[in-house]
């Protein structure tokens, strides 16, 4: 029996829950699942800051959603100011009784799209030399914008504006990790998904241990906006990884990007898209084109990683 089921969670993880039950997030919420795993890995001595809207959704009507201290004053770009304040507050009296030697701190971005649309925040993340871990939850809202573009303006109008080749390529290349972060010299950059939980937890631990700024993008399948059955949340993450649409990779300081969950043969991208009802009227030729681009990007990424290792 042991050889058949080698993963025994009680031996691998602590039972402490810092993201407590009783929230009003949707059924099968991928973001809640990710935040729960992240909070479990960060432990008790962490300060979480996120926009107030997320707090309201996560904690419900009463402020009891989080076991960790929750900073309510931060929103969007102010999260970074708050992080600076917290870090500087810890420095003057390191030997005082009760003072923390090390603050585990995660700045939670609401969404990858919000994060990338704020150039000031991106600039401060990349250039700032803070001992912080930035976790950016990505529920693929940019794909909604793409879907809206493919809908014809008028009923019966058969030639909608389809995005061009270069636009699609840029979207696929930089959607997981934004370009400034990709080319920066941050100490740890990674992508993760709650469908591969041990991979996610290991990356969070590495990000916390790395000296300097760390950035982790987390794919969070969303049953409400992607329109799929809530019980398929994990399945969606697995399919995103298997199709190469969201490759799980990491880069430690001074090394190349490395694929942590390599896929020998990629699944067709249509499997992933057709499992979500929001793509029901998405043009088929666009899916095929994006599938080709995803395969090329994945091959390039794998080739670069192999070349640097050799």
């Amino acid at each position: 029996m042991t050889s058949l089921y080698p993963v025994y969670v009680p031996k691998l993880l602590s039972r402490d829950e810092h993201f407590v039950s009783g929230r009003r997030s949707c059924k099968g919420c991928g973001k809640a699942l990710s935040v729960r795993m992240v909070c479990k890995m960060m432990g008790k001595e962490a300060v979480v800051s996120a926009p107030v809207a997320f707090r309201g959704r996560a904690a419900g009507c009463l402020p009891a959603g989080m076991g960790s201290p929750w900073d309510e004053l931060t929103s969007g770009g102010q999260a970074l100011s708050c992080a600076d304040r917290l870090l500087s507050a810890g420095k003057p009296m390191p030997d005082a009784p009760g003072a923390r030697r090390k603050i585990n701190k995660a700045v939670i971005g609401l969404d990858m799209r919000v994060f990338t649309k704020d150039p000031l925040m991106l600039d401060r993340v990349v250039k700032g030399n803070r001992d912080a871990l930035y976790i950016c939850y990505d529920s693929e809202m940019y794909m909604d914008a793409l879907i809206k573009k493919t809908i014809p303006d008028l009923f019966g109008h058969e030639s909608p504006h389809l995005p061009g080749r270069q636009e699609l390529r840029n979207l696929i290349r930089y959607k997981n990790i934004p370009l400034p972060v990709l080319e920066s010299s941050l100490s740890y950059v990674a992508t993760a998904c709650p469908s591969h939980p041990l991979d996610l937890l290991c990356k969070i631990r590495k990000g916390l241990r790395a000296r300097g700024t760390s950035f982790i993008g987390v794919l969070t399948p969303c049953p409400t906006t992607w329109l799929f059955n809530p019980e398929l949340t994990v399945r969606m993450g697995v399919m995103a990884v298997e199709t190469g649409f969201y490759p799980l990779m990491e880069r430690e300081s001074g090394s190349a990007y490395r694929i942590t969950e390599p896929v020998a043969r990629l699944r067709p991208l249509a499997d992933y898209f057709m499992a979500q009802h929001r793509y029901v009227a998405f043009p088929r030729q666009l899916i095929d084109l994006m599938g080709e681009m995803v395969s090329e990007e994945y091959a390039g990424l794998a080739g670069r990683a192999r070349g640097k290792d050799a």
């Binding site: 029996m1 089921y5 993963v7 025994y8 969670v9 009680p10 993880l13 829950e17 993201f19 407590v20 039950s21 929230r23 997030s25 099968g28 919420c29 991928g30 809640a32 699942l33 729960r36 709650p194 939980p197 949340t233 994990v234």
Partner: peptide, 15 residues
């Protein structure tokens, strides 16, 4: 049940 704990790991609500 083999008490592997996968259900505990994947529950979004910690229930």
């Amino acid at each position: 049940c083999v008490q592997c704990g996968i259900c505990y790991l994947f529950c979004p609500d910690g229930a």
